[in-house]
């Protein structure tokens, strides 16, 4: 019933609009064509300018009210660089945006049709065209130069003292693994993947024995963090908006990203004046029906807190694997060596 009413109302509105259109046309057809064109150009030109002003006000107002919210305070070292680049881009494109749009609406209004006026025959002027080819090129070169300078810094090799974390995406959750005391992640082997050992970690390796899994990502402030990113099933994307970190998690191909957090969760809560604030890890690549739900909390803590937390973590191997398989059986576990040298 409701739907019928909606459709009925909709059709009614359309019919009314159609009738208005018909009447206006009937009236206008009777008039001299030039005069009619001048009149419509007048009123439409004015409406067009008005719509431009309205839109301009809308844009100005919303960017004023939303300003505090967009581009969240950057919580990492390279985030500030990106912030600066965004600012530069905002100024440059903003100026061009305002100038060109203002000119467009102004010209459209100013040069609307007049019966007695003639347009200027101005087919081309190579000097002007070269000028506005060269200037954008120069400006863009500057922008891209600044950008690439930082780009290579962001994707440089991680410092050796970086904390090694492995984050693996799966439908629809993240699995977080820490390198443990030796800060080295145990090697993975896809052929070992089972329900109990989704990641396919080679528990035989010594380095893997102290690795631990964590429910949340805990990282110390001001220390580089090297995130090894992977996926089990489909492509996911590791996205931390506040840290300006994004990297796809691709099954079969390990990717990585390193960054240096600069603001702890506590400090951020104060900045945001929101005691419930938490950094959140999101998935940013469509990965199925639960794509919108792949949340993981990221907690940035002080060095001391991190050390305390770290010492409380228990090796995953000792907790889970050793119990099932028995210490001895793992070592004698026959893992086809041939398989390890997979292409």
């Amino acid at each position: 019933m409701q739907i019928l009413l909606i459709i009925l109302a909709f059709v009614l509105v359309l019919v009314v609009i159609l009738q208005v259109g018909k009447v206006v046309e009937l009236v206008s057809v009777m008039r001299d064509e030039d005069e009619r064109t001048e009149d419509t150009s007048n009123s439409v030109g004015f409406l067009f300018l008005l719509s431009g002003i309205v839109l301009g006000l809308f844009i100005a107002y919303t960017s004023y009210t939303e300003y505090g919210k967009f581009l969240p305070v950057s919580a990492s070292e390279h985030g500030v660089w990106i912030q600066d680049l965004v600012d530069i881009s905002l100024y440059i494109t903003g100026i061009v945006f305002i100038i060109t749009n203002v000119l467009l609406f102004y010209f459209a209004y100013k040069y609307r049709y007049r019966r007695n006026r003639k347009a200027l025959y101005f087919p081309y002027n190579n000097r002007i065209e070269i000028l506005w080819t060269v200037i954008p090129t120069l400006v863009l070169t500057v922008i891209i130069g600044l950008g690439l300078n930082k780009w290579f810094k962001i994707f440089s090799e991680a410092p050796t003292d970086a904390i090694q974390i492995e984050v693996t995406g799966k439908q629809f959750a993240w699995v977080v693994r820490y390198g443990g005391k030796d800060n080295e992640l145990g090697k993975r082997d896809f052929t070992l993947s089972t329900v109990e050992n989704e990641l396919g970690v080679r528990w035989k390796d010594k380095v893997s024995k102290d690795d631990f899994l964590s429910d949340e990502i805990v990282i110390p402030v001001n220390t580089p963090v090297h995130v090894n990113i992977g996926a089990l099933d489909v492509i996911h994307s590791f996205y931390l908006p506040e840290f300006r970190v994004m990297m796809d998690a691709v099954p079969g191909i390990p990717t990585k990203f390193w960054f240096r957090p600069t603001i702890t969760t506590e400090q951020m809560r104060e900045i945001k004046k929101n005691p419930e604030f938490d950094y959140e890890l999101a998935c940013n690549q469509l990965c199925g029906t639960g794509h919108w739900n792949m949340k993981k909390t990221v907690r940035v803590v002080t060095e001391a807190e991190y050390k305390k937390w770290f010492s409380e973590q228990k090796s995953y191997y000792k907790q889970n694997i050793a119990k099932i398989e028995g210490g001895a059986s793992v070592d004698t576990d026959v893992i086809a060596e041939v398989n390890s040298s997979k292409d």
């Binding site: 439409v44 459209a108 049709y113």
Partner: peptide
């Protein structure tokens, strides 16, 4: 933009 500049635009 230059095309409409100093034109005689029929809207």
């Amino acid at each position: 933009l230059t095309t409409i500049w100093k034109g005689n635009i029929k809207m």
